[in-house]
Design a protein around this nucleic acid. Structure first.
Lengths: 222, 222
DNA sequence: GTGAAAAAGCAACAAAAGTTGCGACAAGTC
DNA sequence: GACTTGTCGCAACTTTTGTTGCTTTTTCAC
């Protein structure tokens, strides 16, 4: 097993096509050869199985087998399936995701929403994304990691809104975070609760709804 | 064990304080005594454990023990933990939830959103709700059941919007389902993804945002 | 009440998940 | 290259989870 295994980010490999691995993992005792190779092939295998069969139906032994590694090796590195899944999903990175900046708020938001839809709307993406949520529910540590991940994600997304505020497209009192949540929330509950289809059309629709507002507008002056 | 065990609905006991059990379960061979008593105490135990420790940390044996019943009894009735959880969560009822009808759209929606926030915003409610989602991810049957549950829930909720359309508060082309999704979506992703607080204030805020729209309004005429 | 049928209890079993100790070997150090 | 140490493979083990056959108890129809 000598081919380089490219690291995939479960959350972001559609959202952020760039996936620079910043430091080659600091705390490593032996970053040089087999150890790292094994680590990568296990994570790769876990990642694949998460998207293929989902968290519940994935077993640690399956992962080990696919990685061509003994199960004790896996258990020694990752205490639980949840931890392994978290690492495979790369919950800890995902910084520096390029955010749209077209100069037009609606356009930016639609690009953003469509990206989410693309990411969680496919069969594989759906299983992958669901797996993370399920894994996170299994471990308090992982829950925290996921919350942190989303805090970073939301902070990045709200930049789009804040630029629009600066341009005068939005009122200064706009709650940027809530706005983003109102856009991606419907997409995610379709994935996790209702099972309704998740398409780019829906993504666009939701942006239009949230930006323009549902209500028949009275005359506003500014 | 002779006290009557009151059936609880995991999804709805805050949302719908009324919880009429329509028929006393038809397909039963022996609805008379012990069998039903056992069934109820197992479901009660499962329901409690789901809210106390969550789906992952709940084991079928724990449920059996708390119900004062042998584990084989539980396994024979409910093939998997997911099925048991589904039954405990009562995914199949939840019809006839009273929906607000104050004559004012914003008021109605806020009542609705606050209800959701109350339901999933407490520590117990959160664990309970998360448990359902996680359980649903473990079984295709259950996934379908949950989707059906939500289809019914959304259909009930959209009635609120449709009444507002009839009153002329909203444009006729309003996508009622999407509007409801935009309101409850942010609350649920706070529960399942971001971990941000879920309060009645947020519920109100999101309704205001979605109804009025984020954009600085141009003059509209109707 | 009595008997047939249903359901629960019990114990023993089977399978899956997770752990431990040890020998072998590979990686980094001198 | 020899030494030290981290990591892997392997086998044996424990624990947890789920199953099966049989017995006992309970319900319900008569």
């Amino acid at each position: 097993m000598h081919q380089e295994i490219t690291k995939r980010n479960l959350f972001c490999d559609n959202v952020a096509r760039v996936m620079t691995k910043p430091e080659p993992r600091v705390g490593e005792k032996r970053p040089g050869g087999r150890a790292e190779r094994v680590r990568l092939s296990v994570l790769q295998a876990a990642s694949e199985l998460l998207t293929e069969v989902g968290y519940d139906k994935m077993s640690v032994e399956d992962v080990a087998a696919r990685a061509g590694v003994h199960k004790t090796t896996v258990y020694r590195r990752w205490p639980t399936k949840a931890d392994l899944s978290a690492d495979a999903a790369d919950l800890h990175v995902a910084e520096a995701i390029p955010m749209p900046d077209t100069g037009d708020l609606v356009e930016d938001l639609k690009l953003l929403a469509r990206d989410v839809a693309k990411n969680i709307g496919t069969e594989h993406g759906a299983r992958r994304s669901r797996s993370i949520v399920v894994a996170a529910a299994a471990s308090d540590d992982l829950t925290v990691a996921m919350h942190q991940f989303w805090a970073r994600r939301l902070a990045l997304s709200t930049a789009v809104v804040e630029r629009a505020i600066e341009r005068g497209e939005l009122c200064e009192s706009t709650n940027a975070k809530l706005l983003i949540e109102a856009i991606i929330g419907p997409l995610w509950i379709r994935l996790l609760l209702t099972g309704e289809p998740i398409t780019e059309e829906v993504a666009d629709e939701i942006v239009d709804l949230v930006i323009s507002g549902a209500k028949l507008h009275e005359v506003h002056t500014h």
